[in-house]
Structure formats: structure tokens, C-alpha cells
Design a protein around this nucleic acid. Structure first.
Lengths: 149, 149
DNA sequence: CTAAAACCTGACATCGATGTCAGAGGCAAT
DNA sequence: ATTGCCTCTGACATCGATGTCAGGTTTTAG
């Protein structure tokens, strides 16, 4: 029972609508080897249901700063279970990089938040950062700085 | 006693060396209104000590995805204590956006980590992702998913 | 004094994901 | 068959931060 979940006949416009990603980008992903599509006899792309999740994953990796090339190299492991030790190592490198990003962003977030809540020290000058008017800007819970374990 | 900490006479090459940012970028920052420098009579830039931290802050905000324009608009608040309610609101918007980024990255990190540690479900297919050879890739502590809280 | 090194401005190049446009063909409904 | 929408390929445009080069001036070291 291979390749059962077929018959969905999702076209590129549908996939774009379902993922919020432009048609242009979907074609680009395919060109970069990130996404595959069956082709009808007339050349039109048809996607399986799984494509929706796949596009989501691709977007997530893009958001983490990976390039198309890197994603293309790692996807076989992530998606098909094809893992070589070397691939796993590359994956770990990316994970650690993301850890650093998280740590940096968390720090930035807290600095911004300090300014917003007027919690004293003002990033560089240490001067208070208060509007004449009351700010009334809610939503402030400090993030912990735990990242690269 | 205004503007005491002077006399450091740091030139652009020195600042570049101290911050790890290229000379080209430092000039660009100035052009974008993110960084100011005194000029010697011959036109050479001289920076105060504070410039080092300032460049660091700029980099941090770039890393958070802010554009030069946005940074230029927010820096007066962040650095000089010039906060209007509107500026604080903009700042809060950025903070919340960073929160979303952190949440997304944390999720991505954990998905990658799951694949790395072979902890069962394989992102999309649910197939195990194990190398023939033992992976031996350390460093794995799940991040909590707390962000916009 | 002189040569090397650093600086100045201004311009053009780059990279990567995406937008957009043009011309041609496919598909469904009337 | 015609109309309207969707799709195809291929090409060119964009944006933002940075690299790089050129031609000229300043500073520094010998």
C-alpha cells in the first residue's frame, strides 16, 4: 500500500490559498528541490495533502534563517528519514544556531521591554524612558534566558 | 559636567575592530541616522566610547528583523529617553513581534531536536530518523514554549 | 621627506526570496 | 465554440545590508 492518500488533486492555487504562500513562491520551492508535485498530462502541478504541512515546514525553516540550499540538504533527513551521521551533525549545527538566535532575541525582547515599562535603565544612557503621558502599554512578562543548555 | 568621557578619539577602523562590524556598515549606519560621529577638521570620523555599545544595539535590532528605518525611528526613545506614547506603542509592537519570532523559533528548534535525537515522530512522515551509524550528537534540552505571555 | 596605511566620497555589484509581466495553453461552464 | 479563470514558462525588477573598487586626501611610521 504505497502512496495511498492520493486523489486529492490539489492545484497550485489551492495550495497557495491553504498555506498563505504565493504561487510564485511555491514554484520557486519546487525549483529549489524543496517541494515536489505530480504533473498532469498537460503539465499542471497536482499536490498531495502532505504538501500543506511541507510548505509550513519550509516556511518555518526559512524563518529560522536557513537558505534554500541548506533546507534542500536537510529535508531528506527531516522528511524521509534518510539520516546519515553527517546529516544529523548538520542538523545539530542548525539547532544550535537557532538556540543562539533565541538567546539573542530573548535578550533584545527584554531590553525593549525594560524601555517600555520604564523599568529604569535605558539601554545605553541609563536615562529613564518615560512619556509625559501615561504609556498604558500592557503585555510584559520577562522571558527567561535559557537557551543553549 | 556635560560630555565628559571624551578624548577617546576612536576612529572608524578601531570601532570596526571593536565591534566586528565592517567599516562599510558603520558608514552606512551613519547615513541611515543610526550612529553619529564627530568629525575632525579634515573630515575624519571620531567616535565616543559609547559608540561600541550603540553599534551592538543596532546589530541586535537588525538581528530581530527591524529595518534601518524602523530602528532610526525607535532609537531616540531607546537611547535618549525621548519617549512619546506613540513611540512606546511602536516599541511594544516590535516586542510582541519578537515574542512571536521566539515562539516560532522555539518550535522549530524542538522539531529539529526531535529529529536529531530520533525521538520518534519525524516532522512530516512520522518515520524514524536514525542513521545506521550511531549519531552521537549531544546537546539536547527542550525549550519551553512560553512566549507572549 | 616619503611610503604605507587608513580614511574620505561615490558608485556599482551582490545575494535571495519574492513580485510582476508577457505570451501561450488548459479547463470548466455556458 | 466562446468566455473567463487558472496554469505554464521565462524573464526582468525589487529591496536592504553589505562588498568592492576607484580616485583622492590624511595620518602615521621610518
Amino acid at each position: 500500500m504505497a502512496y495511498v492518500t492520493k486523489g486529492i488533486r490539489m492545484r497550485i492555487g489551492d495550495l497557495a490559498a491553504r498555506t498563505g504562500v504565493s504561487v510564485r513562491s511555491l514554484r520557486y520551492y519546487e525549483q529549489q528541490g524543496l517541494l515536489t508535485a505530480e504533473r498532469s498530462s498537460s503539465g499542471q502541478r497536482h499536490y498531495l495533502d502532505g504538501a500543506v504541512d511541507r510548505v509550513g515546514l519550509i516556511q518555518q525553516l526559512y524563518a529560522a534563517g536557513l537558505s534554500s540550499k541548506t533546507i534542500a540538504e536537510l529535508l531528506p533527513c527531516v522528511v524521509d528519514g534518510r539520516a546519515t551521521p553527517e546529516l544529523l551533525a548538520r542538523l545539530a549545527v542548525q539547532r544550535d544556531d537557532i538556540d543562539r538566535q533565541i538567546a539573542g532575541l530573548t535578550d533584545t525582547r527584554n531590553r525593549l521591554d525594560s524601555v517600555i515599562t520604564g523599568a529604569g535603565t535605558n539601554m545605553l544612557t541609563g536615562r529613564p524612558c518615560r512619556a509625559e503621558d501615561a504609556p498604558a502599554v500592557p503585555n510584559s512578562a520577562k522571558h527567561g534566558t535559557e537557551a543553549s543548555g
